[in-house]
């Protein structure tokens, strides 16, 4: 990894529901000696609620252009923000007419495709690399972990950076920190139900329940994930899911950057371990 400075696109949940993901991402990169420089005045990517692809492209062109003017690649911890940034980058690289149209709307939307949009997980494993990381491991994370990838890391094919059916990047990080991956392949890439939460909570709850109980049945101490919407569904909504189905799950849900931070010897508070909704005490006790 040559560059030591990357433009950081935190995404909207970083300020509220996914604070611990934001905190741990910053702490991990700081420890690795890479400067994350937050993009100034970034706007929301439109998530999955901006249905019109042209609107998504215009919204994300502004963010890509902000990074391009600084000459830095852009990295985000959110799977959906990543999808929107990456598909916009691809669409604009391929379509000169579209680039011209955007420039017409406002000069600040001029993007020439000279930077890359990446997800934090991709940067950690594929750019920084396992070799480099392995030399920096300070602690053994003595946990059984269910690595949960969700939707937008391994699909759709146009933006994916991991395998669609059996993704491995988180598994590799978990092995590196000497933790154990529990058998979880059949659940790794199932949708958490997040996008249906506000309109069909009944379906969303059932989707999340399957993943949570799947992790529990596989003997996991915690679920590791890399998307704030999955975090919201599996962690913040977990007590609601327990109440709706009259079940007890009590499964800690930890962002992969939080776990990696522990292995790198960063103190738990800096990684936001007091921010996860399901208590993380049991997790921290097992880190040596």
């Amino acid at each position: 990894m040559s560059e030591k400075k990357i433009a950081y696109y935190p995404g909207c949940p970083s300020a509220t529901t996914a604070m611990e993901q934001d905190m741990s991402t910053k702490a991990v990169f700081e420890k690795l000696g890479i400067e994350l420089e937050e993009l100034e005045d970034w706007n929301c990517c439109g998530a999955l609620e901006a249905g019109d692809p042209k609107l998504v492209i215009a919204l994300n062109a502004r963010n890509l252009a902000l990074a391009e003017r600084k000459g830095e690649d852009i990295v985000t911890p959110c799977s959906i923000c990543y999808y929107n940034l990456a598909r916009t980058d691809k669409a604009l690289r391929e379509d000169e007419k579209l680039r011209a149209e955007l420039k017409e709307i406002d000069r600040s939307l001029e993007y020439n495709g000279t930077v890359k949009a990446k997800h934090v997980l991709d940067v950690l494993v594929n750019d920084i690399g396992l070799d480099e990381l392995s030399g920096k491991m300070m602690k053994k994370v003595n946990l059984k972990v269910a690595p949960y990838y969700g939707c937008y890391l391994g699909r759709p094919p146009e933006t994916a950076f991991d395998d669609p059916d059996d993704p491995v990047l988180m598994d590799q990080l978990i092995e590196l920190m000497e933790a154990e991956n529990v058998p979880f392949s059949y659940m790794k890439t199932k949708c958490c139900g997040g996008p249906l939460m506000m309109t069909r909570a009944d379906i969303a709850f059932e989707m999340a329940r399957k993943i949570l109980e799947g992790a529990k049945n596989a003997g996991a101490d915690c679920i590791a994930l890399a998307c704030p919407l999955c975090g919201m569904m599996l962690d913040a909504k977990q007590p609601d899911i327990e109440a709706a189905f009259k079940i007890k799950i009590d499964m800690p849900v930890i962002y992969i950057t939080q776990l990696l931070g522990l292995a790198l010897g960063i103190e738990p508070k800096k990684l936001g371990f007091n921010k996860n909704i399901i208590d993380t005490k049991k997790i921290l006790e097992k880190v040596m």
């Binding site: 300020a15 509220t16 005045d41 970034w42 706007n43 901006a50 249905g51 019109d52 042209k54 609107l55 215009a58 919204l59 502004r62 709307i105 406002d106 600040s108 939307l109």
Partner: peptide
Amino acid sequence: FKGMRPEKIKEREVLKKIFEKVGEKE
């Protein structure tokens, strides 16, 4: 009032233009 108050970006004018031009249906 974290989370109670909106975070506003500075260049909201650009967003207005975007929604006028490509967001008609939205």
